[in-house]
Design a protein around this nucleic acid. Structure first.
Length: 282
DNA sequence: TCTCAGGGGCGAT
DNA sequence: ATCGCCCCTGAG
């Protein structure tokens, strides 16, 4: 395998933390797909061992996908605004935001609705195994998540049968829309966050939260923190916000407080609070 | 075996 | 603004 020296990179939390659903841990290795590429990674302290398939040694792809050029330490320094985030950044170290494929992220997050990370990963894997492309190496294999055209060609019934449940019609309609809007989307990517969000929420099955996930994880808009229940708990338990504050106001709070890299702060606080020992409610 | 909520969103009120 | 309900799985 190829070697790359890189400090402050936590593969485990980055790949399996819930921003991507196309990774599995197999023994010591992380096996995942990005578009129609298979990527195998291992972490050894400050070294990442890696290989890509079917095109071998694709360093450009790897660096782009793992976001290796990202100025991690500068960002961490910029968000040290209070004791909570300071403690969190000590405990949770090395999370990056991946540069994932837009279409895959959009479809995967539609599937994430009312599902645990583990549940989404399983569903994504089941769909990939059945309808995706097989990519093999000598040591591992994986199926890529099908592109929009393939998903659009499936019936709602097929998607239900594989486990998509009530998300099946959303997924199918989204895939059709992705195909139809292909050219429009290319231009949209350089538009304002607000405009893109408006477009995304016009999809059935995409509301505020999932739209924000797509903006951050599929388009690299780091000036947003997607508000799942954990990001909300952070605001309520650490920063004293009233639980009744609506989505948009909470979201604006993050952006106003942490600024252009609030997505990173959000990921760190999310991991931190999620791993705190909790007393059971009720 | 059974219950229950899960990193939401929709549609009706 | 609030509230059932959606489909299925893993965890208890």
């Amino acid at each position: 395998m190829n070697k790359l020296d890189i400090e402050n990179y936590n593969l485990e939390q980055t790949l399996l933390g819930g921003q991507s659903f196309t990774w599995e841990k197999e023994g010591e290795a992380y096996v995942g797909t990005h578009k129609d590429n298979l990527i195998i990674l291992k972490q050894n302290a400050n070294q990442i061992l890696w290989q890509t398939y079917p095109v071998l040694n694709n360093e450009k792809l790897l660096k782009e996908y793992l976001n290796l050029e990202f100025k991690y330490l500068d960002t961490i320094q910029a968000i040290q605004k209070d004791e909570y985030i300071k403690i969190a950044t000590k405990e949770i170290h090395g999370i990056r935001i991946l540069n994932q494929d837009f279409e895959t992220v959009l479809m995967n997050f539609i599937l994430s609705s009312h599902k645990s990370v583990k549940g989404v990963r399983k569903l994504v894997k089941d769909i990939s195994r059945r309808y995706g492309k097989l990519i093999k190496s000598e040591q591992a294999y994986a199926y890529s998540f099908p592109d929009a055209k393939v998903i659009a060609s499936l019936s709602e019934k097929e998607l239900r049968e594989i486990g998509a449940g009530f998300r099946a019609p959303y997924l199918k309609a989204a895939a059709e829309k992705l195909v139809k809007d292909q050219e429009y989307i290319k231009r949209l990517k350089s538009s304002s966050t607000k405009e893109i969000k408006e477009y995304l929420t016009s999809y059935k099955g995409i509301g505020d939260k999932i739209a924000d996930c797509i903006l951050v994880f599929g388009l690299g808009r780091l000036d947003i923190t997607p508000l799942d229940i954990w990001a909300k708990r952070v605001l309520i338990e650490f920063y004293g916000l009233d639980p009744k504050v609506n989505y948009l106001d909470m979201s604006n709070w993050y952006t106003n407080y942490f600024g252009i890299n609030t997505a990173i702060a959000g990921q760190i606080l999310f991991e931190y609070i999620r791993n705190l020992p909790r007393v059971k409610q009720k």
